[in-house]
Nucleic acid binder design. Structure first.
Lengths: 117, 117
DNA sequence: GACGATGCCTTGACATTCTAGGCATCCAGC
DNA sequence: GCTGGATGCCTAGAATGTCAAGGCATCGTC
């Protein structure tokens, strides 16, 4: 996936506030570097989610700064240096909290959307 | 509900991008004025959603400007003048579209969150 | 040696939401 | 008659997060 792919279309935007949760979740599965996160998220969501690098890296920086992620340079299978992110204990808590909040909001919005009359 | 109630607590934030959809939905049920929207949304969502007036009114202005809502001054049951909003045809389309997008995103995020291993 | 994929990053614009106020009217209670 | 709360509208400014659009370096392949 080259840089040009990500600039071709503008749909598939995500909801502001969910990106952190998604990143934390992906990092919780196993340590992973940024570039791979994009692909993994896209793959799991069956192309419904398309995270931009311009959104991802600032978010990673933010999450690391808040102590929810920790980074470590390692070598990929491809033999390159990459920054692997994994969850801290606080990150785990944060993920749980955000997940709970997400579900609450989801339910609330469903209540609204399904109101007839 | 006075202004002071809404400044006392800071939780129950909503996701950026969902407010427009919620407003359109509420207005689709029946013409309604801004002040009542807040109460209605809170009531239907069982207090899970708390819309701030400072978010609401700019949003109403935005939606009206885009041709999705139309406003009309009428008298409330309480005998006051209030601005009643209702959906335009384009607003109806927009609501359907946003609802579909919301469901798609919801599903995508669920896929991520429910990924084990 | 050009091009695509892999990897990282930054800058600036943009939109949306929140904070924190303001204003006017009406009614109930003291 | 006055005060405070509820009903209704609105705004300015800050904070935040995302996006667009670039840049850089390395590697492999044609």
């Amino acid at each position: 996936m080259s840089r040009h792919d990500e600039t071709t279309r503008g749909d598939a935007e995500l909801l502001q506030g969910t990106l952190d949760m998604l990143i934390l979740k992906i990092a919780a599965l196993r340590p992973i570097h940024g570039y791979a996160m994009v692909q993994r998220l896209q793959q799991i969501s069956r192309d419904a989610l398309q995270i931009r690098q311009g959104s991802l890296y600032p978010a990673l920086y933010r999450l690391e700064n808040r102590g929810w992620l920790k980074a470590e340079w390692k070598t990929t299978e491809g033999g390159r240096e990459a920054k692997y992110y994994s969850l801290t204990r606080a990150g785990r808590r944060q993920l749980d909290q955000e997940t709970a909040g997400w579900k609450r909001l989801c339910q609330a919005i469903s209540l609204i959307l399904e109101t007839a009359e």
